[in-house]
Design a protein around this nucleic acid. Sequence first.
DNA 1: GGTTAGTACGAACGTTCGTGCTTTTTTATA
DNA 2: TATAAAAAAGCACGAACGTTCGTACTAACC
Lengths: 197, 197
Amino acid sequence: MDVAGATETKETKGARTRAAILERAVDLASVEGLEGLTIGRLAGELEMSKSGLFAHFGSKLDLQLATVDAAADRFRRIVIEPSLAAPDGGPRLRAMAEHYFEYLETFTGGCFWGATASEYDDRPGPVRDAIAAAMDLWIAELTRQASIAGVADPDRYAFELYAVVMGANSRFRLSGERRVFDLARAALARLEAELPA
Amino acid sequence: MDVAGATETKETKGARTRAAILERAVDLASVEGLEGLTIGRLAGELEMSKSGLFAHFGSKLDLQLATVDAAADRFRRIVIEPSLAAPDGGPRLRAMAEHYFEYLETFTGGCFWGATASEYDDRPGPVRDAIAAAMDLWIAELTRQASIAGVADPDRYAFELYAVVMGANSRFRLSGERRVFDLARAALARLEAELPA
DNA sequence: GGTTAGTACGAACGTTCGTGCTTTTTTATA
DNA sequence: TATAAAAAAGCACGAACGTTCGTACTAACC
């Protein structure tokens, strides 16, 4: 019995397989996108049959939606939760930015959200809605922390923070130069200097 | 005889058709990506046959490369050239950011570069190289102007400028809120305030 | 007037996609 | 251990993909 698991799914074989599929699906979608994410290729990499994998989801749309959920889980686990140790406001914001960079450097492909957000920004439907909802949540949290830190215009501050970290991801992936993280950190320092004492 | 056209292609029927194809291809790729850009769909929208269109390029790869070139042309025409009226340095930087926003708002789909850069950042090959080269040129120009304006660290300044305008594109496309342009302009004003008098 | 190049077409190719049905194998429980 | 349920595989399908091929029609040049 898991003490934390009120909504815990029973640890059956199927649930484990499903989780393994989604773990790989997030990685694959970070590289190929959620459209380029192919059931056949995913099955091949996991050494199982297309139809066997397919049965876990019933449709490609459901697989895509489940993949977005799994990606959000990973983001929470690697970026959000470790940042909760830092105090509210400025320190929390710095921790989130720093953990986001760690999150990026451990990925083989690019950031899932950077890849899929631009893939779906002109593609209406439930997948786009799920991505937009997840990113809105992330921006809202940045805004909330900026507000706690006491900045005059938390919306602008959060936007700028978001733009800098996502821009670092984008530039690094395309140029391969690790130096862009230094540029991004310099930009973040400038933002931090803006915070009231 | 075109006075500007040393490398001008002869205005044959085929050249005109090819240009029309590429014009549409840029729009389509801005929405569907360069992988999602399909010869059949492109031909359908232009009311011509797949094979007739295909003959203009010989391969999908060549079509993609030609589309990247056409997109770079459009960017130069709408963003770069109108900005040359402004004096070097700070004014030029402001003009480029402002023209980039106009460029975005006239598009039906998102920014071609925002869409394709993240699509190809983990997909090695000539298409990725072409996109990366075009974006490096854009960043280099921003850096050059920042240097002329006299900022201490032009690399960081250019990165931040790039991050803000691309971030505005990304957030606007996903949220649909025109307000993000105000946030971006506020961020740009903060950057401008940094310039030495 | 006959030849040649440029431009576009329709049909078909082999492949891959998502998905539906049926069967076999594995897992869990009584 | 027997048996029902769950999970995975096998197989086939229709559609769409990029690409190739043979063939018209048009315009220019000998």
